[in-house]
Nucleic acid binder design. Structure first.
Length: 442
RNA sequence: GUGGAUGUAGCUCAAUGGCAGAGCACCUGAUUGUGGUUCAGGCGGUUGAGGGUUCGAGCCCCUUCAUCCACCCCA
């Protein structure tokens, strides 16, 4: 006698039913397609890593959010659940260097785990979708990442998006130029990161509250708000801060490469108020925002030349991007970007069953349809025809094949399209062809 | 981790401290070979859980759990 247990998932963990999974797969498959077009290849790694692999990489605050995992009472090899896909990449590169060809271009689509308090678009288990290039120090790799991001967002059907681009070293230079001490730079990033949310005045107030000199704050705020079309804002910074500032050259090259690739100016923007939280970035940083409607960021990334050094004597330059697919999926729902053929089911035809005696014939019909590549369900229950049609209708199956004693006797099948009630009595030999026509005809 | 809101049928929500309801969904029939529309009927509840106040609690109080929102942080 088993005890009743109220069915539920752990906090921040979700189930996905078929209708949702079809949409998730559509998004992931679309992204994969573009990754492949650019020559990125998949890897996967274990959900569990050794404790020592993850800890010491993200900073103290983030480490509080890492789930740990243990088997029974074993105290050997403490384990932890992966927190992102970037540190596992760094480990893989360190571990399999001899088997990898540099430049190594990999993508990785997999769930990661963070013990945060869940909110809309924020979960404790969520999927990340990363593409990174290892072993290329030049901007050609960064440009390729940005160009691929544009391609993916187009492929998914987003009518409007902007990839904001900034540079870690440029931010440092601007901070130094303005007179912000190095040890206060993390505070500075944290506040500036909220620029979109709390505005220039909000950032200023917060920085002064954090004890940063108010003159320095003013100088810096003026600089980061430099705004000119295209790469002109780069030159504006160059005039004030100096032409030889670290990072400026990178961004100039990037601008040049993006222009050569005919990336439309409305799809990218040098924005010195954009900061990415993660500490390991060392070069250009990217973030995609959808501003109409204003729904926040859906991808982020950048260059992190030192991280792999955690798993290898000498580091390797690395740059990449990560798509926040949970948000992308929410947004695509809101913006209705899914193609119409993506209904609630992938089943294209239901073969009804008149009685147990005719089930064999229905199964044969289904086999024929399947041979022709049509996703087919044979009704497995024993309900009357009306119920079988209702099942197809409710599930969104477009056509039904009816084979009762009369049809079987005559060697025919009646095909019915539920959308408009169109019916065809077809010969068994032409079954698949006719079904295909009914499915295609709009 | 901090602050706020909400928990009533499978779902969305009603119900002055006084008999727990509606819509949708589901099931049956009208219609024994035809879904969606319609009509008639039916199933469905320890009001999140535990305690307290009261003649009487879904409603008031306390505790606890869950969910959502905002912050922190982030994808």
């Amino acid at each position: 006698m088993s005890k009743f247990v109220a069915p539920r998932t752990p906090k921040g963990f979700r189930d996905f039913l078929p209708e949702t999974m079809l949409r998730r797969s559509y998004v992931l498959d679309s992204i994969k397609e573009v990754f492949h077009l650019y020559g990125f290849e998949p890897i996967d790694t274990p959900i569990l890593e050794l404790h020592e692999t993850l800890f010491g990489k993200y900073g103290e605050d983030a480490e509080q959010l890492i789930f740990t995992a243990q088997h029974g009472r074993s105290r050997r090899d403490p384990l932890a659940m992966r927190y992102d896909l970037t540190v596992p990449l760094a480990r893989v590169v360190g571990q399999y260097e001899s088997q990898l060809n540099l430049p190594f271009k990999r993508y990785h689509i997999a769930p990661v785990f963070r013990g945060e308090r869940p909110q809309r678009g924020r979960y404790r288990e969520f999927w990340q979708c990363d593409a990174d290039t290892v072993g290329v120090a030049s901007m050609s790799a960064d440009a390729e990442i940005v160009i691929m991001m544009v391609q993916i967002l187009r492929r998914l059907g987003f009518p409007q998006f902007v990839i904001k681009i900034n540079h870690r070293q440029l931010l440092v230079a601007i901070g130094e130029f303005s007179g912000v001490p190095n040890e206060q730079l993390p505070d500075l990033y944290r506040s500036v990161d909220k620029f979109d949310k709390i505005g220039a005045d909000g950032v200023k107030r917060e920085l002064i509250e954090r004890g940063i000199d108010s003159d320095a704050v003013s100088r810096m705020m003026d600089l980061i708000q430099s705004k000119e079309p295209g790469s002109n804002s780069l030159e504006l910074i160059a005039k004030t801060v100096g032409d030889d500032v670290k990072g400026l050259d990178d961004l100039r090259q990037l601008a040049q490469l993006l222009a050569e690739a005919s990336i439309p100016p409305e799809n990218f923007d040098f924005d010195f108020t954009m900061v990415r939280g993660l500490g390991y970035y060392t070069g250009p940083i990217f973030e995609t925002v959808i501003s109409e409607p204003n729904l926040g960021s859906i991808s982020g990334g950048g260059r992190y030349d030192n991280l792999i050094g955690m798993f290898r004597r000498q580091s390797l330059p690395t740059t990449g991007t990560s798509f926040g697919i949970e948000r992308i999926i929410d947004l695509m729902n809101e913006l209705a970007l899914y193609p119409p053929h993506l209904g609630g089911t992938l089943v294209q035809a239901l073969v009804t069953v008149f009685s147990d005696e005719t089930r064999r014939e229905s199964t044969r019909i289904a086999h024929q349809l399947r041979q022709a590549g049509i996703n087919t369900e044979v009704y497995l229950g024993r309900r009357k025809l009306g119920r079988q049609l209702a099942h197809a209708d409710k599930k969104g199956i477009p056509i039904v094949a009816i084979a009762g004693p009369d049809e079987i006797e005559a060697g025919v099948v009646k095909l019915r399209r539920l959308r408009d009630g169109e019916e065809k009595m077809v010969d068994l030999k032409k079954l698949a062809q006719s079904a295909g026509e009914l499915l295609a005809d709009r």
